[in-house]
Simulated scan of single mutants.
Amino acid sequence: MIRGIRGATTIESDKPELVWEETAKLVQEMAKANSFVPEDIASVTISTTTDIKSAFPAKAVRLLEGWQFVPIMCMHEMDVPGALPLCIRVLLHVNTATTQLDIRHIYLNDAVQLRPDLVRK
């Protein structure tokens, strides 16, 4: 079974090092919380709000140990007025026996406000 695992984070400003640092932190937390390894991943979709232009977040993921062969694609989110700024969203497509109810979606920094119903303390 392939399950989608969602995650999001925000950065303080559009600087490459922040894009890479926060993206890597988010993806590692998603992997830890859901007990999967890169070999379990079918693909990864990463989106950013249009105010992030300094770096590709996928670079941070590809540099993680064991992730260099995982298919990853980056794109921009819709530019909706009032949307959370400087936001990076990740959707992992993971082969897992974990039930939909037991998947842990991860929201960090200001992104916790996107889905407070999914944020676990």
Rank of each mutant, 00 (worst) to 15 (best):
I2A: 11
M30F: 09
D79P: 08
V119I: 01
W67D: 00
S35Y: 15
W67V: 01
V70H: 01
V19H: 04
T9G: 09
V94R: 01
P81I: 00
L64S: 00
T99E: 12
R3L: 14
R104Y: 15
S35V: 11
A55N: 03
L92V: 09
R6G: 10
L18H: 05
D102V: 06
P71M: 01
D117S: 03
A83T: 04
M75N: 15
S13Q: 11
I72A: 03
F56K: 01
V37D: 02
W20S: 13
V44Y: 05
E22H: 15
N109P: 08
K121A: 10
N109D: 14
N95Y: 10
E29S: 13
K25A: 13
R104M: 13
I88N: 03
E21V: 07
A33Q: 13
T96A: 09
E65W: 03
H76P: 09
V80F: 09
D117L: 03
P57G: 01
T49K: 10
S43R: 15
E17W: 15
R115H: 11
Q113I: 07
H105K: 11
A111L: 05
D14M: 02
E29M: 14
D102L: 10
L64R: 00
V27C: 10
I5P: 06
S47H: 13
K15W: 06
L86E: 04
D14F: 08
P81S: 02
K53S: 12
H105E: 07
D102F: 12
V19F: 07
P85F: 05
A58R: 01
M73T: 13
I41E: 01
T45H: 14
F69Y: 10
L63A: 03
G7H: 06
I72C: 04
E22R: 14
T48H: 05
M1E: 08
K53V: 15
K25L: 13
